[in-house]
Design a protein around this nucleic acid. Structure first.
Length: 345
DNA sequence: AAGGCGTGGCC
DNA sequence: TGGCCAAGCCT
C-alpha cells in the first residue's frame, strides 16, 4: 500500500494543478490555514472552475480571517451570491467570528469539526493540508477512486463505510496534505465519473476495477428520486426614483439570508401575492430554475411604483445600491426577464 | 437518518 | 433538451 501512495505522489509532483489556494507539491512551506479553510468550504459540492473567481474576490476583500469576521453579513451574502448552498456563507461568517475570537484555527481534526460548516471531510482536509496531519480525507472523488481501485460494488451511499476503510489503508504518514490533494486531483482529471482515462492513470496497474473491466461503471449508486415541479410568481417593482423593491429572505432554509423578489411561497400552483397594489403586468416567458430537489417555474410581473407606495413586504433598495450580482441565480434570472420591460435602467 | 440545500457544465 | 454530477454539512 505504501508503494501506491508513493506512485501517486510522484504523479502529483509532475501533474499538480496550480491553484490559488495551493502550495506547489513538495514545497516545504505550509499554506495559510485561512485560505485552506475558505477554499475547502467553497469547494464543497462545487467545481474548481466555479470557485476560483470567488476565492480571488473574497481573499482580496478579506485577506485574513479577522477581516472576514468584521465584515457585514449582507456584504458577505452578496459576494457569495451565485455560488449556491448559501448555508455555507452563513456558517462561514459564524466560523470566522469564532476563530477570530479564539485567535487562530484549531490545529487538529476533532476540534476543527466542532466549528460551523466544517464536517468530517473538511476537518480532515484542513488538518492534512494546512497542518500536515496524517488524516484520512474522503470526499466524492476519493470514494470513486477507491470503489474502482478495489472493485467495490456496494452502491452509494451505503458503501461509504467500506470505501473509507479502503482510503485509510492507502493514506501515508508522509506528505498527507499533498497525498489528499493528489487523490482528489486524480479523481477530477483522470479517474473521472465518465470516460475515465485509465490509460494514463498512475494506479493503472493496481486497479481491480480496470482489471475486471467495470471501472467506468463504479461506484454504483441508488436510483435518484424524480424532482417535482413547483410554480410561483415574482414581482419586480421599480419606484419612480429607480429604487427596486426587494426582500431579504429568512435566515434559514432555501436561499436563506439572500435577497429576492417578493412573491408568495412556491407550490403546486402559482399564487398571486403582489407586495403592493399597482398595475402589475406580465412579461413574456417564465423563469425556469432547478434546485437540488425540485424544478421551479416562475411567472414574472413588473410594475412602476409611485414614490408614495408603501409595500406590505420588502424594502426599497436605492438604484445605486442595487447590484444584480448580489442576487442568487434564480432571482437574477427573474431580473433578466423583467429588465427589458423597464425604461432607462 | 433521510432529506433539504444551488449552480453550471457536460453529454 | 434534461438528467447527471461536483473537494458535504446540517437537522
Amino acid at each position: 500500500m505504501r508503494e501506491r501512495a508513493a506512485d501517486l505522489l510522484e504523479w502529483y509532483d509532475r501533474h499538480a494543478r496550480q491553484l490559488p489556494w495551493r502550495m506547489p507539491p513538495g514545497c516545504g512551506a505550509r499554506p495559510d490555514p485561512y485560505r485552506v479553510w475558505l477554499s475547502e468550504v467553497m469547494l464543497q459540492q462545487t467545481t474548481v472552475a466555479a470557485v476560483t473567481s470567488y476565492f480571488e474576490r473574497f481573499t482580496t476583500l478579506w485577506p485574513t480571517v479577522e477581516a472576514l469576521a468584521a465584515a457585514r453579513d449582507e456584504e458577505v451574502m452578496g459576494e457569495w451570491a451565485g455560488l449556491g448552498y448559501y448555508a455555507r456563507a452563513r456558517n462561514l461568517l459564524k466560523c470566522a467570528r469564532t476563530v477570530a475570537e479564539k485567535g487562530a484555527f484549531p490545529r487538529n481534526r476533532a476540534e476543527l469539526e466542532t466549528l460551523p460548516g466544517i464536517g468530517p471531510y473538511t476537518s480532515a482536509a484542513i488538518a492534512a493540508i494546512a497542518f500536515d496531519a496524517s488524516e484520512v480525507v474522503v470526499d466524492g472523488n476519493v470514494e470513486r477512486v477507491m470503489a474502482r481501485m478495489f472493485a467495490v460494488e456496494d452502491p452509494l451511499p451505503g458503501g461509504k463505510r467500506v470505501l473509507r476503510e479502503k482510503a485509510a489503508l492507502l493514506t501515508p504518514e508522509a506528505r498527507p496534505g499533498d497525498y489528499a490533494q493528489a487523490v482528489m486531483d486524480l479523481g477530477a482529471t483522470v479517474c473521472t465519473p465518465k470516460n475515465p482515462a485509465c490509460g494514463i492513470c498512475p494506479w493503472m496497474g493496481y486497479c481491480q476495477g480496470r482489471k475486471a473491466g467495470i471501472a467506468a461503471d463504479l461506484p454504483k449508486t441508488e436510483p435518484k428520486k424524480a424532482k417535482p415541479v413547483r410554480f410561483g410568481v415574482s414581482y419586480v417593482g421599480r419606484r419612480a426614483d429607480g429604487a427596486w423593491l426587494l426582500e431579504r429572505r429568512p435566515a434559514r432554509g432555501l436561499l436563506g439570508g439572500m435577497l429576492g423578489w417578493p412573491g408568495a411561497e412556491w407550490g403546486d400552483v402559482a399564487r398571486e401575492a403582489p407586495p403592493v397594489a399597482a398595475a402589475w403586468r406580465e412579461v413574456g416567458g417564465e423563469a425556469r430554475h432547478t434546485f437540488t430537489h425540485f424544478h421551479l417555474r416562475l411567472d414574472v410581473r413588473v410594475a412602476d411604483l409611485p414614490m408614495e407606495a408603501v409595500p406590505a413586504v420588502g424594502d426599497f433598495v436605492p438604484r445605486e445600491a442595487f447590484r444584480p450580482s448580489d442576487l442568487p441565480t434564480v432571482m437574477r434570472k427573474v431580473f433578466d426577464l423583467a429588465h427589458d420591460t423597464f425604461d432607462n435602467i
